[in-house]
Design a protein around this nucleic acid. Structure first.
Length: 473
RNA sequence: GGCCUCAUCGUCUAACGGUUAGGACACCGGGUUUUCAUCCCGGCAAUCGGAGUUCGAUUCUCCGUGAGGUCACCA
C-alpha cells in the first residue's frame, strides 16, 4: 500500500512549485490505489498566516487534487495539524532523551550565533556538535532539545535522483524541540511520516542535503525510513533560481482567477519535469494517473514558461464543448452583458472560442457584441489598404453594402452570398472591402469572421453601425 | 569556504553506446477568399569544455567549468 503526503506550512499561498510537488505525490498514490494525505505543518507560530490553510486546500481542489486524510476530513491518524499533535512529539522526544540520543542545549541563542560566526570566519561549515556540551542539563522543555547525532557516511537511493551519498560532515546535532515547546520540522515530519505510515516522501530539492540528518534520526528512533523522492526545482520565469515568492511566483489561484482551466494547469504542471517518454504533450488527468512514474521525473530544474501554459490552456479551451465553456465563463463577462440572454452569449462565445488563451480575455474580445463601439478613425487611417482609398470611395462602398444588407435575412448563408456579391459589385478585393465593413461593425483591430459577426450581431445593430461609420467619414 | 545536486535548440523535453540528434512552446515564412485566431505546410535553433574507455560516445568514467541548493530554536 502506497501512502504519500503533501505537508505544507500555512504561511501563505501555494505557487506552481508547491502544487507540482503535491501533484506528483498525489499521482503516485492514485495510480497505486494508495492514499494521499494532506498534513498541515503549523509549528512555526510566528510565520503562520491566518486563512492560509483554507487557501491551500482551495488551491489543491482547484487543480483536482483530492486527499484521503486531512484536517478537514479527518482520518485514522487524526489530527492532521501538527500543532494538535504536540504530546506525540514530546513523547517521542522523551524517548530519545531516555535512550541517550537527545540532550538539552545549554547555550543561549547568542552563544550559538557566536559559534556560527566563528565557523563562518574560519570558512568552515558550522557544526553544532563541535560544541556539544559535556554535561548537558536535564531537559525540562524550556531549552531546545538536540539530537545526539552519530556522524557517519551515508548512501541511499532516491527514486528520482538515483544513488546519493554524503560523508559524516553532513551530520549534526540539529534541534528537535524548540524552546517554545513546538517541534522543528526536521523532527516532527519524521515522527508523523512514521506514525502515519507514509511510504514515499516526495519533496523538492532543498531538502536533499538534510536527508543524511534524517537518516541519522531514523536510526536513533529505530524506524525504517520511507522511500525518498527528490523533485527538481521549478525555476523562476526569468532566472536560474528556484521559483519563490520573492521573485514573482504567483498564487496558483491567480491563474484560476484569470481563467486558466484546471485541466490545463494539471497538464502543464505534470509535464514540467516529467514526460512519458513519447512525444505526447497533452494528458488528461486519468492519463496522468495511469502513466506517471517517478523514474521518469527529470533531475534538473525546469523553468516555468508561462507562454507554454497559455498555449496549453488555449488548447484545453478549444476542446471544451460550448455549454461547458459557457459555464466556465460565467464570471468573466463584461458588465454590459446583463441584458443579453444565454443563447446570445453562447453564440458570441462560440465565435471567440478558438482565439481565447484564458477566460479573462473574454471582455476585450467580445465588447463590441454587447455595447456600441465608439468610432476610431485611426483604424482606417492606419490600415495598410484603406488609408490609400479616398473618402468618397469608402462612403460609396459602405453605402452599397448597407443597401444590400438591408435585403438580407442575416442568416449566415445569405450574408456570405451577399458579401461575395459585394466584392463584384464594388470591384474590390476582400482585403479592402471586408476590412472596411469589419471596422465599421467592430471598431476593433481584429475580430471573428465577418459573416459570423454580422449574423450574431443582427440586422438592426449592424446597419446602425454602418450608418454611424458613414456619418463619421 | 565545506558538503550535495544538476548540465541536449531561447524554453519544456526525446533518443537499449550506432539516429541526417526527434517532438512541443516561442519566433519567422507560406497556405486556408479581410483582420486576429484556429488548422495545415515549411524554416530557424542544441548535446558546456577537455581527457579516457570503445570499432563507435548526448549516453559510461575522470578532471575542469558553469548553475543551483544547503550549512536556522523556517519549513
Amino acid at each position: 500500500m502506497i501512502r504519500t503526503r503533501f505537508a505544507p506550512s500555512p504561511t501563505g499561498f501555494l505557487h506552481v512549485g508547491g502544487v507540482r510537488t503535491a501533484l506528483f505525490a498525489w499521482l503516485l498514490a492514485r495510480q497505486n490505489d494508495g492514499q494521499f494525505i494532506l498534513r498541515i505543518e503549523d509549528t512555526d507560530k510566528v510565520r503562520e498566516v491566518v486563512g492560509a490553510e483554507a487557501h491551500i486546500q482551495a488551491s489543491l481542489k482547484w487543480v483536482g487534487i483530492e486527499w484521503n486524510e486531512g484536517t478537514d476530513i479527518g482520518g485514522p491518524h487524526a489530527p492532521y495539524r501538527q500543532s494538535e499533535r504536540l504530546d506525540l512529539y514530546h513523547a517521542w522526544a522523551q524517548k530519545l532523551v531516555d535512550s541517550g540520543r537527545a540532550y538539552a542545549d545549554p547555550y543561549t541563542p547568542e552563544q550559538v550565533e557566536g559559534f556560527r560566526e566563528e565557523a563562518k570566519r574560519a570558512k568552515r561549515p558550522f557544526l553544532y556538535r563541535d560544541h556539544r556540551p559535556d554535561n548537558p542539563p536535564t531537559w525540562d522543555g524550556s531549552q531546545p532539545l538536540r539530537l545526539k547525532s552519530e556522524p557517519k557516511a551515508y548512501q541511499w537511493h532516491d527514486a528520482v535522483m538515483g544513488d546519493l551519498s554524503t560523508g559524516p560532515e553532513a551530520i549534526d546535532d540539529f534541534v528537535l524541540m524548540k524552546s517554545d515547546g513546538y517541534p522543528t520540522y526536521n523532527f516532527c515530519h519524521i515522527v508523523d511520516d512514521a506514525v502515519m505510515e507514509i511510504t514515499h516522501v516526495i519533496r523538492s530539492q532543498e531538502f536533499i542535503s538534510s536527508v543524511p540528518k534524517y537518516l541519522n534520526l531514523y536510526e536513533a528512533l529505530g524506524v525504517a525510513p520511507p522511500t525518498m523522492a527528490t523533485l527538481p526545482y521549478v525555476m523562476a520565469i526569468d532566472g536560474k533560481k528556484k521559483l519563490g515568492k520573492r521573485d514573482g511566483a504567483r498564487d496558483i489561484l491567480d491563474y484560476a482567477r484569470e481563467g486558466f482551466l484546471p485541466e490545463a494547469m494539471l497538464n502543464f504542471l505534470a509535464t514540467l519535469g516529467w514526460n512519458d517518454g513519447t512525444e505526447q504533450e497533452i494528458f488528461t488527468k486519468n492519463e496522468l494517473i495511469e502513466k506517471f512514474s517517478l523514474d521518469r521525473v527529470q533531475r534538473s530544474g525546469a523553468r516555468f514558461d508561462e507562454q507554454r501554459l497559455q498555449w496549453m490552456n488555449g488548447y484545453w479551451i478549444r476542446r471544451l464543448d460550448l455549454d461547458d465553456l459557457y459555464q466556465r465563463a460565467t464570471d468573466f463577462w463584461p458588465p454590459t452583458v446583463a441584458e443579453y440572454d444565454e443563447d446570445y452569449k453562447k453564440k458570441v462565445l462560440g465565435l471567440i472560442q478558438e482565439r481565447l488563451k484564458f477566460l479573462a480575455e473574454v471582455p476585450a474580445l467580445t465588447e463590441f457584441f454587447f455595447s456600441t463601439p465608439a468610432i476610431d478613425p485611426e483604424l482606417i487611417t492606419t490600415h495598410k489598404q484603406l488609408k490609400k482609398c479616398s473618402t468618397e470611395d469608402l462612403r460609396q462602398w459602405l453605402q452599397t453594402t448597407s443597401t444590400s444588407l438591408e435585403g438580407s435575412d442575416f442568416s449566415n448563408d445569405d450574408l456570405t452570398t451577399r458579401l461575395n456579391d459585394l466584392l463584384e459589385t464594388t470591384g474590390q478585393k476582400p482585403a479592402v472591402l471586408f476590412s472596411l465593413i469589419r471596422i465599421a461593425i467592430t471598431q476593433a483591430p481584429s475580430s471573428p469572421g465577418l459573416a459570423d459577426t454580422l449574423a450574431v450581431l443582427g440586422k438592426e445593430r449592424s446597419l446602425e453601425r454602418i450608418r454611424t461609420q458613414l456619418a463619421a467619414l
